[in-house]
């Protein structure tokens, strides 16, 4: 497995470009990756590890398979950055540390911070997007206003849910069973189901700010777009957060 990894051209060029402690970090990152990550994400970082299938969702009898992240594409769902951009190092560190709830991605709080930082650097060697793209800046998201979760905000959010046509995918009751839900695919051509809010916590995080962030960033690589431009009013966004929180209460 180690041999395979070292043979990857990307990695070799990455190592050559570095020196001293950075190269040591990358070598440590590779060790951590091979200990903790490779079984799912694969030695090439393409998400084709031995486990293959780590997450399945069943909605109304429809079973879909979600594969582990393909790092070679340089496309990430859960970020703090605008749609289409790479995540920040902090984003990667957060996911490595906390995991993705209700997915196959566990948290890694039992891995030292230094090791987690090094594996984040290693993950970035799988795609040259990290060298080509401009530095990334996170979107600025304020704390949720106190009205979030109120009945008034929730009712207004219900109207926003209609205007933004959320129900087309997520369904009127948020069960992920909208009219367009059946044929959805992700960027890799795999079937994907819209989130069923009534099933509980969302993967991107269930605090109001995290839900807001998902509206803004979209989930790259999936049919869930960014609503940053479509929903320019701050108040509409928080009202929609209120409505989503209500849907999650079932």
């Amino acid at each position: 497995m180690k041999h395979q990894t070292l043979a990857a051209p990307l990695l070799v060029s990455g190592l050559l470009a570095l020196s001293g402690s950075a190269a040591q970090d990358l070598a440590r990152g590779e060790q951590v990756y091979n200990s903790r990550c490779v079984v799912c994400h694969g030695p090439q970082g393409d998400g084709k590890g031995l486990i293959g299938i780590v997450h399945r969702a069943q909605t109304s009898g429809l079973v879909t398979t979600t594969y582990p992240r393909d790092f070679t594409a340089g496309v990430f769902k859960f970020r703090s950055t605008p749609s289409g951009q790479l995540p920040t190092d902090d984003d990667l560190m957060r996911i490595v540390t906390e995991g993705i709830s209700r997915s196959g991605m566990p948290s890694h709080t039992d891995v030292s911070e230094a090791d987690r930082l090094s594996v984040v650097q290693y993950i970035k060697t799988f795609s040259d997007r990290w060298e080509r793209d401009d530095p990334r800046e996170p979107l600025q998201i304020t704390d949720a206003p106190t009205l979030v979760g109120s009945d008034e905000s929730t009712e207004r959010g219900r109207a926003v849910y209609q205007t933004m046509q959320c129900a087309v995918c997520h369904g009127e009751a948020g069960r992920g069973d909208g009219t367009a839900s059946a044929g959805l695919q992700d960027s890799w051509g795999d079937a994907i189901v819209p989130f069923d809010f009534t099933s509980g916590p969302v993967k991107g995080g269930s605090t109001p700010e995290m839900i807001y962030r998902t509206f803004m960033t979209g989930l790259d690589g999936t049919p869930m777009p960014s609503y940053q431009d479509a929903m320019p009013e701050e108040a509409d966004r928080w009202d929609l957060v209120s409505f989503c929180l209500r849907l999650m209460q079932g």
Binding site: E98, S107, D110, S199, G200, P201, S206
Partner: peptide
């Protein structure tokens, strides 16, 4: 077929020690 995750007050979505 499935309980609600949040039925248990200490349901874990993020592992920690």
């Amino acid at each position: 077929h499935r309980v609600r995750l949040e039925d248990h007050p200490d349901a874990v979505t993020q592992s920690s020690v």
